[in-house]
Amino acid sequence: MRKPLKRRTVTAMAMDFTLDVPESVSDSALDTVMPYIESDLQWADAIFSLYQPDSQLSRLGRGEASIGECVPAVAEVLDLCEKYREETSGAFDARRPDGVIDPTGIVKTWAMERVRWRFQLLGASAWLWGCAGDVTAQGRPDAVGPWRVGIADPRAGGATVDAVELGAVEAIATSGTAHSGEHIWDPRKGRADTHFAQASVAGSDLVQCDAWATAIMAGGRKVALAAQAEGLHVLTCAVREGKVFAERSPGWPRMQNAGRE
């Protein structure tokens, strides 16, 4: 049995971010560090939100500010968008048709990675840091085993269809569509697997996993194959006739007893 863990949740960007640490981590350390993490995330939201008309990114989009007038983080994130646009051969693209750059797709994971250094201040030997489909971890929570992450059932309902161990990989990102029933079958092409209900990518960098998971959702199977050339592992799920048809790369870090419990 896993030893008990402590979980703290902070809210930013209208999403919950959860941190799991071993129970041995002191409450006072958590109480001290978590507010800084929350405020870091909220700062990122204030800079990058395209909803808030006075955010630096909104002003940039309207041409009211230059990149040089924005905080350096803006250039950093836009550089990352370009990096992953190139790496994914265009499948990840933050440029909207109207010309506005919308880096929202990776701002969240960029912000998650950005606060990573603060976890050292907890004195924790292990931590797991997640928000929705994106999760990254360090260390082992106890002697029982490494951090274990389930992959949600794309049919929703809260179940899991697969489970992986973190260790050899440190990050997992899952991207999905709002309607998994969409694009179930394309009779003209006679195939359905270019449209995934969900794509999970495992690797060492959460932002990279996030960008590739998004790219796979946009670009389909070719992109899932290409991800492997970057050393990433992929699990895609399509839903047809109520069943989950998955495809995984050979290196997918499946939990050792997954599928047998």
């Binding site: 896993r2 863990l5 999403m15 959860t18 799991d20 797991l128 997640g130 929705a132 489909g133 994106d134 999760v135 929570p141 951090w147 274990r148 992450v149 389930g150 992959i151 949600a152 059932d153 794309p154 049919r155 929703a156 309902g157 809260g158 179940a159 899991t160 269809v161 489970a163 997992i172 990102a173 899952t174 991207s175 999905g176 569509t177 709002a178 969900q198 999970s200 989950v244 939990m255 997954a258 599928g259 419990e261």
Partner: peptide
């Protein structure tokens, strides 16, 4: 769909 003893579930937020 199965139940595994996991620490976190990575799911698209839809």
């Amino acid at each position: 769909a199965q139940d595994w003893d996991v620490d976190y579930v990575s799911g698209a937020s839809f």
